[in-house]
Design a protein around this nucleic acid. Structure first.
Length: 442
DNA sequence: TCTGGGGTCCTAGGACCC
DNA sequence: TCTGGGGTCCTAGGACCC
């Protein structure tokens, strides 16, 4: 949402929403859109019915743009911070070993969230640090960030919630005393707490817990006995100022999934194979990018759950490989094998996906005792490396396997196949990554 | 007509072992 | 009537996150 506004300053203070893949449903909303009552997850077609003559700016997801702009933001945070752990596409945690003046804990944890003064006064050095960071990012990238500073990650997330919503904080909120901690938690609805989701907050409310403060005030033994869940207990500790969520750089993924819903529905195996081949190829790329191989290739397939008038089918199967691989050819082949056993004719399929598991480092590789051709293996590795380079330089999918070509299938008919490729009718341009999209100055 | 995608961790229960 | 105890590993499902 903020990314879309960078190149559309005219949308400042206007309702803006971003849609999921296939322009399916709303996944991000500006504050103005929230105020109109647009709920997260609203299907786009309902949005159109709800606001027929709307003045809402609608965008399809543009991951290329978001990835590029958020990388610039993170780069600046790294310049300004002693340590910075990237937590998600739009969030970082910064760890300050020099925090001394807090009665809560030795170290402040800072949550920078891209995206009136109930807590009272403003702290010293850390607040101006945060304000300057916000200013710099605004100037260099054009994106607003919210900054929360506190002794634990859960409290820092709480602080960034206030920083985002109350302009008085000037984008940076600090929880650095027992008094502010209590005040913040009293104003913080339980369902907003990091780690307390939809189900748990319902349960909490039946137990009379409305705010984060109500929860934090309970006895630790009571929390453990009531929920019998270590994660919830950790959240309780964090709210009470005990830092127990480890500082970790994002580890290598233990499973990698590529899945998509189809714009329409698919009934025939050859078309499904084209899609599954593409998902498998994407998984192989992701494996190589993190320097890993997999030993399990799993494929799932299902019909449209919303179409109660049609027969339903859901299934998934996997293939285990003797030798770990990240080769596109290997993984596409395995995925298609699985798909053939999975496919049942007669259903209208809506979604398929490939998941690779059993992930380990790509070297040293454990070869198959009986069937391993080192020469062939080296060739495949080089081929993949070359394909990755070309696709990086010239845009993804410059080189693909024959089985990945959406137009190739005989009998399917070009129009029919193209009708199924992902829909994104409201995609913005990519002025930071594509020469053809560069903005002309008059 | 149209309803996202990609992850993690924890727990309970079953299979199996000695 | 009587039917061990203790452990590991795997899987499915549920909860959470962005």
């Amino acid at each position: 949402m903020s990314c879309e506004r960078v190149f559309r300053p005219d949308l400042k203070d206007k309702p803006v929403v971003v849609l999921s893949n296939n322009d399916g449903c709303v996944v991000a909303r500006s504050n103005e859109a929230k105020r109109l009552g647009i709920k997260a997850g609203t299907p786009y077609f309902q949005l159109e019915q709800q606001f027929p003559d709307h003045k809402i700016a609608v965008f399809s997801s543009n991951y290329e743009l978001y990835g590029e702009l958020t990388a610039r933001v993170v780069e600046i945070i790294r310049q300004e911070s002693p340590t910075c752990f990237r937590y998600s596409i739009d969030e970082c945690f910064v760890y300050f070993p020099t925090w001394k003046d807090s009665s809560l804990s030795k170290f402040p944890i800072i949550n920078c969230n891209r995206s009136s003064l109930p807590l009272g006064g403003v702290g010293g050095g850390f607040h101006s640090w945060g304000e300057n960071l916000h200013k710099k990012i605004k100037q260099y990238v054009g994106m607003p960030v919210s900054i929360g500073i506190a002794p634990t990650k859960t409290l820092a997330k709480t602080a960034s919630y206030f920083a985002k919503r109350y302009p008085g904080y000037r984008h940076c909120c600090l929880i650095d005393s027992e008094e502010k901690r209590r005040k913040a938690l009293k104003l913080f609805p339980i369902e907003e707490v990091w780690g307390i989701g939809r189900r748990l907050s319902v349960k909490m409310k039946t137990l009379g817990i409305q705010t984060a403060y109500d929860f934090a005030q309970h006895n630790g033994d009571w929390v453990r006995a009531t929920f019998r869940n270590i994660v919830i207990y950790r959240t309780w500790q964090e709210l009470n100022g005990i830092d127990c969520v480890p500082n970790e750089e994002m580890a290598k993924k233990k499973s990698i999934c590529t899945s998509r819903s189809f714009a329409g529905m698919i009934t025939d195996l050859p078309t499904l194979q084209t899609y599954v081949s593409n998902y498998a190829a994407r998984c192989a790329e992701k494996l190589r990018r993190q320097g890993t191989v997999c030993t399990i290739v799993s494929v799932f397939l299902h019909t449209n759950f919303f179409r109660e008038d049609l027969p339903q089918y859901w299934n998934s199967l996997e293939k285990r490989l003797a030798v770990g691989t990240s080769s596109t050819i290997d993984i596409v082949k395995a995925a298609n094998e699985v798909l053939r056993s999975l496919y049942v004719p007669g259903y209208h399929y809506k979604k398929a996906g490939v998941i690779v598991m059993g992930i380990g480092p790509d070297s040293p590789l454990q070869p198959d005792l009986f069937d391993f051709n080192a020469d062939q293996f080296q060739k495949m590795k080089q081929l993949d490396a070359v394909i990755d380079r070309i696709n990086k330089l010239n845009g993804s999918e410059t080189i693909v396997l024959g089985s990945q070509q959406y137009t190739r299938k005989e009998g399917a008919g070009k129009a029919e196949v193209f009708a199924n490729v992902i829909k994104h009718d409201f995609r913005s341009k990519n002025p930071t990554t594509r020469w053809s999209d560069i903005i002309p100055l008059k």
